[in-house]
Simulated scan of single mutants.
Amino acid sequence: MDREKIIKDFISFGLSKREAKVYYTLFLKKELSAAEIQKHVSILRTKVYEILLQLMNKGFCAERKIGRLKKYYATDPYQAFQNQINNLDGILKTKKNIVSEILNHIAPIYEKNTSDVNPLEFIEILYERKRICERYIHLQQTAQKEIMIFTKKPYALPEKDNVKNAFNVLQRDVTLETIYEIEDFENTEFEKEMIEKFAYSGGKTRFISELPMKLAIFDEKITMLALKDPVSLKPLITTIIINHPDYARAQKEIFKAYWKRSFSLEELIEKYSNSRKIKEK
């Protein structure tokens, strides 16, 4: 017999490690005393008696007295395991009945609670820059199909980090479409270089004179946006996340409309190249 394999199977069935070792030992000879069993399993004598009692209670072994000496032997394993299976079936049946009773009481309560939808459950509002960055990066990392972005200042992340995260998205074969404001391309050589690197690495990039808001749409499910303060009209870092596919699809239509009106990188470069030539003349 493969000792380790059989002991492992005993444990998988439900015996403790010590019970499995003692039970296996009982098959080595027709009968064994506690002292003889101890030599094979390296367990204290008092513990051996305790384990043998547990095995007898489960029907796996029995004892026979020869004068003052007690001998232990394995019972018919077919019958022993069948009795255990019958016990497990009985326990399972009892638990099924208990679960049925529980569900009769709590299922109606659960259904009532879930049917009372709170619209605010779909909305998350973030104020702290660190938390906004964490959520944005997480949504980028977990997107499976596509991300659509209106990129507009102020940035929660430096543009260098934005482009780095975008490269990681593209490596996962997620479609990434970004619309920048033309001002960003004109602003500094560094930002211009970052945007060009992103575009030439597979990111779909276009440019427009002005965007209505900061916006990101993830897999037509989640929308992340920041709006201007309605009083001061200043851009805010405060961000709203709406987890609702209907809203995301509606925002996607807005994104597509702006995409059609915007310039490609090549068109923008040509436009500014022509502008410089006119100025030089």
Rank of each mutant, 00 (worst) to 15 (best):
R3I: 08
R3L: 07
R3H: 05
I6C: 02
I6R: 13
I7Q: 13
K8A: 14
F10D: 10
I11H: 06
S12I: 11
F13K: 07
K17M: 11
E19P: 07
A20G: 08
A20V: 11
S33I: 05
A35Q: 10
Q38I: 03
H40K: 12
V41F: 04
I43G: 05
L44R: 06
L44E: 11
R45V: 02
T46Q: 05
K47V: 12
I51Y: 01
L53E: 15
Q54H: 10
N57P: 01
G59R: 04
R64V: 13
K65C: 02
I66Q: 13
R68N: 15
K70I: 03
T75G: 02
A80Y: 05
N86R: 07
N87M: 06
D89M: 11
T94E: 15
I98T: 15
E101V: 08
I102G: 00
L103H: 06
H105D: 11
I106Y: 10
I109P: 03
Y110W: 11
N113R: 15
N118P: 01
P119S: 05
P119H: 12
L120S: 08
L120N: 08
F122T: 11
E124L: 08
I125Y: 06
Y127K: 10
K130D: 10
R131C: 00
E134K: 13
H138K: 15
L139R: 06
Q140F: 13
T142G: 06
A143I: 08
A143P: 05
K153T: 14
Y155K: 04
P158V: 09
K160L: 14
K160G: 03
D161Q: 12
N165T: 09
A166L: 03
L176G: 04
E177I: 00
T178C: 09
T178E: 07
Y180I: 01
E181C: 07
E181M: 13
F185Q: 09
F185E: 08
E193L: 02
M194E: 13
K204P: 00
F207I: 05
I208W: 03
S209G: 02
E210K: 14
E210G: 00
K214T: 12
L215G: 11
I217D: 05
F218H: 13
F218L: 07
E220G: 11
K221M: 14
K221R: 14
A226D: 09
A226R: 15
L227R: 15
D229C: 06
P230E: 09
P235S: 10
T238V: 07
H244R: 08
Q251Y: 10
I254E: 13
I254P: 01
F255W: 07
Y258N: 04
F263T: 00
F263V: 00
E270I: 07
Y272E: 12
Y272F: 11
R276W: 11
K279N: 04
K281Q: 12
